[in-house]
Amino acid sequence: MFRMMNAQQPGDQTAGNTTDILHDFQVSFFAMRRLATFPWTFLEKELANEKTSELVSDILKQTCLHPLCQKHPPSVKYRRLFLTELIRRQEAAEAEPLDELYDALGQVLGAEEGAECYKSYILPCGGAVSLLESVAVISDGTTGLVTWEAGLYLAEWALDNQQAFSGRTVLELGSGVGLTGITVCRSCGPSRFVFSDCHRSVLQKLRDNVRLNGLDGRTGPGVRVEELDWGAATEERLREIGANIVIAADVVYDPDVIGCLVKLLSRILRGSSPPEGPPEVLISSTIRNPDTYNCFKLQLESAGISHDVITGPVSHVFPYNRVSAIELIKLYI
């Protein structure tokens, strides 16, 4: 695994600010955030004051020249746009030229863009969760080949509540590319973790990402990747999994599948109980369409399933759009 930024030195405010900015550039770059969200204003002020390229060089070392970028690079187009913007800001400030910056741009200008790229999410403990994702939002007829905000939020909640997963068997519904589950496996100490999805393309990508992050059964918790059709999953199958806690993120988006999802959740809560009682069930949702989300809650109520909204702040670990309305609920009967 790769170590990321070193912690700032206590009492050194300038070094602290610079370290924070370098960290912001790094986490935003590897997660392929929109360039407009980067802390360009700080960079411009530093360049105007110093007229040197030292900070630009440090940014380059934490992004395009970082070992993680050599192994799991963001898309070619993204790196090209990032470097072009970095050069534009440097030249506008009339700072001293930096050969490494132009060399890095020259390398990506000659590279071919593929249908897939890597996104990496920096963990508080050091290292990163790296995911091979589709460049397109919708690919192979599914949205499951990219990471969505509710999954990032649930992963942050898990990092703040590691005791909820420690030593337990976890089932994740609709795992997608695997960000939430891999974060839990890497940081929260579950005894077993079952990733699941029903789309073949998603399952293949999911298996690739699980292996990519070293969760191949040789180290860490026992990990399985399984096909799980919500409409066909039997109580016997769910009992075999024996989950103590069930999680899901961004699974409430299509009115046509809500009925199957609610029936599955009912089977999980009523028929797949391990010896210590029904599993905990946590659902994280980005509320894009309030009518669809309210329909989900009404169907839960009709099925005799109650819910509590889990409130309170979570630590901001991953970069994503926090303007979106995201709700995390706990289900029970």
Rank of each mutant, 00 (worst) to 15 (best):
S130W: 04
F25Y: 04
A325K: 14
L264V: 08
V314W: 03
C188D: 07
L300C: 13
Y332G: 01
G242L: 13
E50Q: 15
D308K: 14
Q163K: 06
E226F: 00
H72G: 05
E50N: 15
L173D: 10
L328D: 01
G222L: 04
S28I: 00
P255S: 03
E112T: 14
G110P: 09
N209D: 12
M1K: 13
V27F: 02
K297S: 03
Y78S: 13
L145D: 07
T142I: 09
A7S: 14
V137A: 10
P39S: 01
R211I: 03
D250Q: 08
P190N: 10
V246Y: 08
S191D: 13
F2G: 09
D58Y: 01
T183C: 05
G11T: 11
A31L: 02
K297V: 08
F2Q: 11
E227I: 06
E44R: 15
D250A: 03
K119M: 12
P274V: 05
L212V: 10
Q26G: 04
G176V: 04
Q13N: 10
V223W: 01
T180C: 10
W157R: 10
D197M: 04
L86Y: 08
M1L: 12
I247W: 05
A325W: 09
S306G: 15
L35S: 06
L269F: 00
S187Y: 06
G214T: 12
K263Y: 00
E327D: 14
V108A: 09
V223I: 15
G304F: 06
I258N: 02
L265T: 05
K71Q: 15
L265K: 05
N161L: 13
W148K: 09
S28L: 03
L328A: 02
V177T: 15
R88G: 02
T18W: 00
V194L: 02
P221M: 03
Q13W: 05
G114M: 06
N289W: 05
H66G: 08
D103H: 12
D250F: 04
K119I: 12
S302N: 14
L98Y: 05
S57M: 03
P39F: 00
Q26F: 00
L22I: 09
P124M: 00
L206F: 03
G312Y: 06
L282K: 09
S302Y: 13
D160W: 02
Q9P: 06
V202F: 07
L60V: 02
M1I: 14
A128H: 07
S166D: 11
P255L: 01
G231H: 01
G106Y: 01
F193M: 07
P221S: 08
P67N: 12
C69W: 10
V223K: 07
W157S: 08
V262G: 02
E100M: 11
S266V: 01
Q162S: 13
S284V: 00
S273A: 15
E96Y: 06
A115K: 15
